[in-house]
Each structure stands twice: as C-alpha cells, then as structure tokens.
Write a protein that binds this DNA or RNA. Sequence first.
RNA 1: GCGAAUGUGGCGGAAUUGGUAGACGCGCUGGUUUCAGGUACCAGUGGGUAACACCGUGCCGGUUCGAGUCCGGCCAUUCGCACCA
Length: 777
Amino acid sequence: AERRAERTGEHPSVITARNISTFKGQLQKLGLSYDWTRELSTSEPRFYKWTQWIFELLYERGLAYRAEVPVNWCPALNTVLANEEVHDGKYVETGDPVEKRLLTQWMLKITAYADRLAEDLEGLEWPAGTYKAQRDWIGKSIGANVVFQVLGRTEPITVFTTRPDTLFGGTWVVLAPEHPLVDAITTPEQRDAVAGYRAAAGKRSERERVTEAADAPKTGVPTGAFAVNPVNGKHIPIWIADYVLASYGTGAVFACPAGDERDHAFATKFGLPIVEVVRGPDGTDVQAAAYTGDGPHVNSEFLDGLHNEDAKAKVIAWLAERGLGEASVRYKLRDWLFSRQRYWGEPIPMIELADGAMKLVPRDELPVALPQIDEYKPTPDGKPPLARATEWLTTVDRQTGQPARRETNTMPQWAGSCWYYLRFLSPERDDVAWDADEERYWMPVDLYVGGNEHAVLHLLYARFWHKVLYDAGLVSTKEPFQRLVHQGMIHNTSFKDARGKYHGPDEVEHRGGAPIDPAKDNFARVSSVPWYVKGTGDLVEIKLDKMSKSRYNVVNPDDMAAEYGADAMRLYELFMGPLEDGVEWETSGVSGTRRFLDRVWRLLVDPETDTPSGKVSADAPTDNRELERALHAAIKKVTQSVTDLRFNTAIAEMMVFVNEATKASTVPRAWFEMFVKILSPFAPHVAEELWQRLGGTRTIAFEPWPAHDETKLARDTIVIAVQVGGKLRGQIEVAPDAAEADILAAAQADAKVQSFIAGKPVKKAIYVKGRLVNLVV
RNA sequence: GCGAAUGUGGCGGAAUUGGUAGACGCGCUGGUUUCAGGUACCAGUGGGUAACACCGUGCCGGUUCGAGUCCGGCCAUUCGCACCA
C-alpha cells in the first residue's frame, strides 16, 4: 500500500480500504461463511491502539529495547528489515538487495523465549516441515565456552564449541576478522597481512559472503600470536578467517581438523597438524577426511576410551573446576528488529525527552494515531517519513511538562498479525483488547490454515507475543495455534522468454496442428508443442508456476464465477486434490463440477419448463438399495471430511450418489433432502435454491445435519474375490453372513478357479472376512 | 552437501492402512437426440490379445499365502536449509 502511495500520491488508507472492499466482495460472491460482525482491520486506530498497548507491555517487561546494531538495510524500500525477512542478501517479498548498516533501532527480545519457543512445539499438531523449520531457525546448540590464554597477554580468548570432547585435537584457534582482540594480538610481522585480509573481508558484502560460502575454498591468515590449549598446555597458532562469524557464539572457535569438516579443509589448505581424538570405524583416516561420528577417544589423556557424550560431560566438569570453561547454550535466533522507517505502520508509542531518555506514552493517550502527511518518503536528511509531521512530532511529557519528540519509527507489518486472532474474540470492545471469559472459552485456535511462507515469520512472532501475554496472565494457553495446515498453492501454465520476461497466454502462439488454448487446456497438452512470442521467432519456456500477477497466469475468481458459477468454482477447488498439495489449475475441471451441479439441479427441476421434474417425489418407493447405500456413504464421507479436510473424496462420494440417482427412475424426496443438506456447505447457492423449491422456509444452513445409518451401508450379497496363489482368479457372490466353510467351498467350486487349481491339492486356504479367499496350491 | 516431502493410466487424483490397483472427475472413442454445432443421455476407456495368457503403482532386491502399502539399497522431482563452530 505504501509503495503504491509513493507512486500515485493516493493515501495508503484509501488504497487499503479499496483492496479490502475488492477482496471482501470476492469472498462474499463465493459464499464463504465468515462472521462479518467480527471483521477487523489491523490498520485502524481502534485495532492498533491495542497493538501499541501490547508493545508497552513488552517494554515494561524489559522485552523491548533500543540498541545500535548492524541492521539489514534495504535501499529500495528505504527501511530496515528483520533477519527473518532477508534471505540470500535479498528481501524475501520483493527480491530487492539488502545491505548491512549500523543503526539505533528498536529490538524485541525474542531470544529470551528461544528455549520455550523450541520446546513448546511439542504437543502441537503441526506439519513436520514447519516444526523443523522453526527449530532450525531457533537453532539451539548445547556446548561449552572454553577459555584460551594468549601467550604474552592477560586478556584471554573465549570460544564456543559443541564438541569440547575434541579439545585435545585442537591445533589452532580462529577469530572472526571483526573480533575485537585481533588488533591487540597481531604481531608486527603479520600486521600488514592481517590488515589486508580484514579489509578484503569487510569489502565483501554480506550477500557475497553468504552466497559464495557453500564450496568456496577457505581463506585466512595467521595473526602471529599463540594461544594455550587449556587441556594440554600446548601452544597453538591464532588465525583469522571469515568462515568464523562475528555474530554467532563468541566470534572465536578452536579448530579440531580431525573432527570437523571445515577445520579439516582449512588444515589441508594451510598445512596445519591433524591429531586424531575420536576413533572411527576401521578404515577411518582422519588425515584424509574428518570423522564427525561417535567413538572411543584417543590421544586425549583423561578422556581416553570414553565415548562422545561421556567425554563432553567429563571435560566440561574438568574445565569448570579450573575456571577454564563452563557449559553453555547458544541459539541462532537473534533478537527481533522491530523498527521500520515506513509511514504505513503502527507508530511506536514512545517519546524522547531532551536528554535522550525514552518514555512510554501513557496508556490513556493510546492510540498514538498516524498523522496525515503529504509525502511518504524519508526526509532529505534520511529520517523516517513520520519526521515530516512536524506538528505531530512535538509533544510534552505529561509528568514533567518537559518538551518531547515522538518516536518516528513505526512497527513492522507483522505487529498486528501477532495478536489479531485474539481481537476476533471481542472486536466490539473498546475498553479491553479482548474479554477474558471469551479468551478462556475460545482459545487456542483449533485449526489454523495458512501458507507455509509464514513458517519462520508470522508463526514465530505470534507465538512469541502469545507467550509474553501468557506470562502476563492475559491469555490462558501457552500456544496460540493448536493445529496447523498449510494449503497447497495453485499452479498454472506460464510462458517465459529467453530474457526471463513472462508473457500472458494472449501474447504467445504455437504454429500448426490442432489449436490449443492455454486458458482451457492443461499443462501436458500446452507443453506438447513449442510456443513463440506472437509474431516473432522467439521461443518461450513453458512452465508450471504458482499463480502470480507478474507471471500473467492468474485465474480471476470473478471470471470463473461469472462463467461457471461460484458453486462450481468452489467445488472444483476442493475436488482438485488434497488441501495440502500444490495442484495445477485446469479450467476444464470446473466444467466438470458445473456438470455435476447441473445434474443435481435436473433431478428436481425440468430446465425446459423450470418446473418440478417429478423425479423426486414423496411417494417414490424406498426399495432402491443401491441408491440408499450411496446416500448414506456420501453422508458418512462428507461428515468425516470436515475433520479430515479430505474434501476431494467427499465430493467424489456425492457424485456417486448423483450418478445413481440419475440412473434411477424416481428418488424419494426425503433422501434428496438429505443430499441437498450435505451438498450445501460445498455449493451453498445451488443448495439454498433447491431447498426453497423443496418448500424450505428458512435458510438450509439452519437445518439439522443428517446422520448416516451404518446398516444402510451393508449389501444384500457381497462379492468375494478368489485368489489362487495370490493372483485374482475369480469372484463369488455370497450372503454377508455366510459361514467361512461355505465360502471356501464355493470358492473352490468356481469353474474358473478350478482351472487354475488344475487338480493340485489346496495346501492352505486363507479367508479375509468379507473380502477375499486365497487358495495356496 | 544436509533435511523433508513426493513418485500410481493421456491428465488431476482414489485405494477401508498388508487383502479384487485405477473410485470420482477431466480428456478421448463410439452411439442416441439434433439440419448442424453445442448441450444432454447411453456404452467404452491401464498395456497387451481374436479371446485367453501375460505385463502393470520410479528402479533393484527382500519379507509374506498375498506388497501401491512393510524392510534394505538406488534413481528422479519439488520444497526448505546451507561456513551457526
């Protein structure tokens, strides 16, 4: 909204309101049954008053602080971004490049919750991949801090390691190029080399360092200084290398090339000694490759013979006794950078006094509403857009009467979505964020359906806020989202030319052969011939991509609803495959579900005259067992599908019923009514209309849900498959309650089965109740 | 490189969790209705054969009376992660 506002000058609130209206119109056209009395918008002051209120809670609990930190700065957006929003040196949403800058910013102390965020995932019904993505992002490592004395200096180097058991194999120490001790310890002979290396490392952007990382050879230079290995007193060289990150652990590691692949590569390149400390399986040669597995320790004095875990415990105890180290836990997770230099966000409810002290805006002054400004760009001197609101900016501290300035940073987009699910509980209340009784009744969210792109963003941030609210006694559950399901993406054919530009289906053509319409035909058909940019010889690549505007392969739900009806569109979306799977859009599939709905319609209505067809009748005989069976099977399956989220097979069962009903000469009215009820959540418009024509006086949504009758699912006779040696050789029809002995006899008597037994003795006969007989000869 | 998921007709997908592979839909073939096209309806549709046989769930092997399903080993695709000590 804000970027559009920058281009057009239109206020973001106007753009947002228009988008809401469009989306809402589409949702309503599709007949989605939202409770619109609970509609809310995170960008309205009535909502964000409480977002600010939660920020104040975070601040008071010591979880919001200002710090000068290296931040991810996105020049295209003129703002900083959180770690979670940056991947491969680019903003994940737009691909705009991101660089490092040192700025004073608001941070949220999510790291204080790292352990609980990892542990409490246990017991949630979440997809395994998302569960793991969060754990990996939090990145808990259990290890030890170990102190290395530096020869000739008093200040030691502390390293973090997860493998303190391999200390006896530690043959050098590596500092990150940015490590604060580097200057102090570097010897005069090495000064030039070290300075050169640091300069080169500093010049490489974050992006280069990350993308080149994978298989680039290790680089580094010695500082000339030596450290003392605390376990054996050996003097080992101190190097600097950029594979050690200043931002993780202590920015310093000890190297054990025998037990770590990176160290091994480094040792090989620079000819450093490799000492075996863990004995691997026979044939393991640590001079050739690192051995990272478990095994008895060697060359390790008091650790000799111990396996990894025991050795770790023993060496940590040994170090602790001598004040040379201690057990330590580290996380990859960093604190959450919470400021944005944007206009269209919640103002951070803080004021700054003349002496630089920060103070919360008093609760009764919330919300701090966004002021109107006429330009949404940063100020010429680089301050956030809100600095343009000069009047709004100046205020006074109510307590002291001192003049003060408002904070001009705003919160990130995630702030409102961190707690909106709680606001749904009491959207009409202005005196509280949510009602405590409602919270106890409704929470946690039973089922949360959303895209997996939120795996380490929204879902991590919201869990963090929820836990803070839990600690403050404001919510009753530790976790906000009990069951999580990621819906799959819908893909569609796209055309990409050699320069990487995408083309819409009306900008491309194929030559000769039967006509193919990319808007109607499926991918297999479309991709069976070469396509060209219209009127040129430029070949295009035909791909299946997730639908997106920039790829010109979006199917507009409004168009589909106009051509096939909203119900056919809904039904197709649910029928195309399991909810979690990504699937290819196929417009011809919508015509299939439309056909199905037409058939349902014609059971009751003669389309020529628009009057009752007479097929559905209160007097129709109810002895059509197949039809009755199909009805009850459909009721059972549809009912089950609501909890299973297996809508595709539920729709298939309804189709079976309709096929049966189409074949039948009459359909009992009571059966048809039950069918219309189970159809109604899938195709509400058609079902509602049918219900009225059946004489219903109130909306079908209020009718009780039909229950299936298990006895109606039974058949009068059942077909038993007969196998000989595990291969299907015949089928026999028997009564459902026939005795096993009779079934076995009937199976062997079958003429076709006989020919395969061919007079050989039956050694063994297996009977699976109601299913099959297998005769072993 | 590491991790996860997936692999079934021409296509999307079913398969009661070890028991008749291919439900349902799309597409296709033939027929009826129609001047015709479309719609609708009927029949057919994994390969193979005159019909059987036989073959068939990514590949190789194993367990079992019986494997899409379980076990071992490969291959491919997709999606994450990627110097975190």
